[in-house]
Computed example of a mutant assay.
Amino acid sequence: MATLGRVTATSLRDLGSSLRRLAGSGVGVVRVLERHGFGTVESGQMLVGTAAGERAGELYRGALDDSAAPLAAASAAAPQTRDAHVAEAAALDAGLACAGGATLLGHPLPAGHAEALGAALESGVPAALVSTADGATALVLTGPALETVTGELGSPTLDEAAAAAARTLLRRGATVTEQIPTEAGDLLLDLWVPVPTVLIVGAGAIGDALTAQAALLGWDARSESGLDATVAAVTAFSDADVLVLLDHDPAFDAALLAGLAHGRGFLGALGSRRTQAARRERLLGAGVTEEELAQVHGPVGLDIGARTPAETAVSIVAQVVAQRSGRAGAALAAAPGRIGA
Rank of each mutant, 00 (worst) to 15 (best):
T103M: 12
A330Q: 14
F252T: 04
D83W: 11
H113Y: 00
G268W: 11
T312D: 10
E183A: 15
V234F: 11
A78G: 07
G24H: 14
R20K: 15
V27T: 11
L210F: 11
V300F: 07
G118D: 06
E292I: 10
I316Y: 14
Q323I: 04
G57H: 00
E42Y: 00
R13I: 01
V7F: 00
L283K: 01
A203I: 03
E122L: 12
E58D: 11
D239A: 13
E178I: 05
A240W: 14
L141Y: 00
L216Q: 15
D190A: 04
A209C: 08
W219M: 14
R55S: 01
T197D: 03
L4M: 06
G135F: 01
G100N: 04
S123C: 06
I206H: 07
H248Y: 09
R172W: 07
L15M: 08
L92Q: 15
A68M: 00
V149D: 02
V48E: 02
V201P: 12
L4H: 06
L284N: 03
G259N: 09
R279G: 03
L293F: 06
P126Q: 09
G218C: 13
A286F: 03
V296H: 11
R20M: 09
G226C: 10
D239H: 12
P250W: 03
L256K: 13
L104N: 00
R35D: 04
T3E: 11
A331T: 03
I200A: 05
S325E: 11
A209L: 08
V193W: 03
T177F: 04
A97H: 06
A111P: 13
A99F: 02
M1P: 14
G287C: 05
M46Q: 01
R282Q: 08
C98L: 13
L104K: 01
I304G: 11
